[in-house]
Write a protein that binds this DNA or RNA. Structure first.
Length: 427
RNA sequence: GGAGGAUUAGCCUAAUUGGUAAGGCAGCAGUCUUGAAAACUGCCGGGUUUGCGCCCAUGGGGGUUCGAGUCCCUCAUCCUCCGCCA
């Protein structure tokens, strides 16, 4: 959420940001917001004057009664009218503020200056890589679906039977490999990268979705358990960032770094026909997520660190990847800056997004009211929040299976995973 | 699911029959000191204002009232007990 004070003082900058994001058509929203803001100010003034009057006279009534000078009946009658006026004004204000909040919640975040200009994904800019590792694939490569099926480690058909399309089942060594990946990633983050492990709930309430910005914008992409008012998390970012919702963090505790595994649930409504085969797009997948809370001046430093932590995993696994900087037209509304890490899929013959590393600056912190006091006398400030996948297993598994396949259709297990799997080959 | 109790600022704790939130700790600044501690003084929820001031704020949301921390309804969370159950 943007600061209404910032919008009021820098409307041109906000409108320029919308244009950089290819959202120029939302410009009227900004003007409407400023109009409402101005109306609000006048109404608040009038209401405050009436409230001041009521408070003063109420104290007079109390004095009159205490000293036995009378009942104050005349004043009470006058204040009845005043109170009615206040009620009307407050009701009108509440309507107006709701309208303002709806607009404000719908406006995207500011963009960092370093975010490249561009209309869509084609305009994203290569930041690092490609980072290659030696893999001998001097035979016709098979894709992850073929490999998974022939080795009996992935079962999409039964997944479709028990749940629906997009709910894969891992079986035997496939299940073990998936669990090994998750454990390897979590162990690396906690042991080598300084993160505190969190195992969060997989369902959250609507306030949490709102806090991280998935609500209301992505309401149609989230699984909803209507009876209990709960939502399946689309990413661990939601429960983990909301751990500190409404809190005043101790400045000495910053930066806070959490790593969390969670299953992630996404309806993927409207994306059928696009990368839907096998693991490329599923309704449920596994992901280890890194989440950070930092002082504002440290957040861009943290962004590079998180990116580095995600890259370390791919280097250890020896899976080729590249890093791109998302351009203004492709970056998500919540983020001020975002890197995507893409892994190479030899069978698909293209890069697949396996991680997104973002700095949200104070956008989420303002929505979820996460603050700290820089020092004793200064006012509370919003922290900056960041997160990065480290990593999502589904696309990673695609790349892993394909890169580590042998000419005989077996899968070698990457060396760093062997302590976790207990075997070095899937056949 | 049922009964009772609780929720006040970063933390802890007060508030007559309803009369408009009192303190303490921590923190920050200053005085004193070679330095530190102690002591003393000031600041110490949010908004608005050049300022005085004004408004809002007692878990969330409603209601009664001229006026609600206080009375009523409802929801959430925690504690105690009862019931049910993996």
């Amino acid at each position: 959420m943007l600061d209404i004070n910032f919008v009021r003082q820098n409307p041109d900058e906000v409108i320029a940001m919308l244009q950089r994001r290819q959202m120029g058509k939302d410009t009227p929203k900004v003007n409407k917001l400023l109009e409402l803001d101005s109306d609000r100010k006048q109404m608040v003034q009038r209401a405050d004057e009436l409230k001041a009057l009521r408070n003063r006279v109420s104290r007079e009534i109390a004095d009159i009664r205490r000293t036995g000078q009378g009942s104050g009946e005349e004043l009470i009658q006058q204040m009845k009218t005043v109170s009615d006026q206040i009620s009307d004004l407050d009701a009108a204000l509440a309507t107006l503020e709701t309208e303002m909040e709806e607009i404000l919640l719908g406006l995207p975040n500011r963009l960092h200056d370093s975010v490249p200009a561009g209309r869509n994904a084609d305009d994203n800019v290569l930041y690092k890589g490609p980072v290659e590792f030696i893999h001998q694939l001097d035979f016709p490569v098979r894709n992850h679906l073929d490999l998974g099926k022939s080795l009996g480690i992935l079962d999409f058909e039964r997944g479709a039977k028990i749940s629906g399309a997009g709910f894969p089942v891992y079986v035997g060594k496939g299940a073990r490999l998936e669990r090994a990946l998750i454990n390897f990633m979590l162990d690396t983050h906690t042991s080598n990268h300084g993160y505190t492990e969190v195992f969060p709930p997989f369902m959250v309430n609507q306030e949490s979705l709102r806090g991280t910005g998935q609500w209301p914008k992505f309401a149609d992409q989230v699984y909803h358990i209507a009876e209990d008012g709960l939502y399946c998390i689309p990413t661990a970012e939601v429960p983990v960032t909301n751990l500190h919702r409404g809190e005043m963090l101790d400045a000495a505790s910053l930066p806070i770094a959490y790593a969390a595994y969670s299953a992630c649930f996404r309806r993927e409504a409207g994306s059928y026909g696009k990368d839907t085969r096998g693991f490329l797009r599923t309704h449920q997948f596994n992901k280890v997520e890194m989440v950070r809370f930092t002082r504002p001046e440290k957040s861009y430093e943290a962004l590079e660190e998180i990116l580095g932590h995600a890259e370390n995993l791919l280097c250890a696994l020896k899976i080729p990847y590249r890093v791109i900087t998302l351009c203004g037209g492709d970056i998500s509304a919540n983020a001020a800056k975002c890197y995507d890490i893409e892994v190479w899929s030899p069978a698909e013959d293209k890069y697949l997004e396996a991680s997104s590393v973002s700095n949200f600056e104070d956008y989420q912190a303002r929505r979820s009211n996460i603050r700290f006091k820089p020092d004793g006398k200064s006012k509370p400030e919003f922290v900056h929040t960041l997160n990065g996948s480290g990593l999502a297993t589904s696309r990673l598994m695609v790349s892993l299976l394909e890169h580590y396949q042998t000419a005989e259709g077996k899968i070698k297990v990457p060396e760093v995973l062997q302590p976790y799997t207990g075997f070095d080959i899937i056949e």
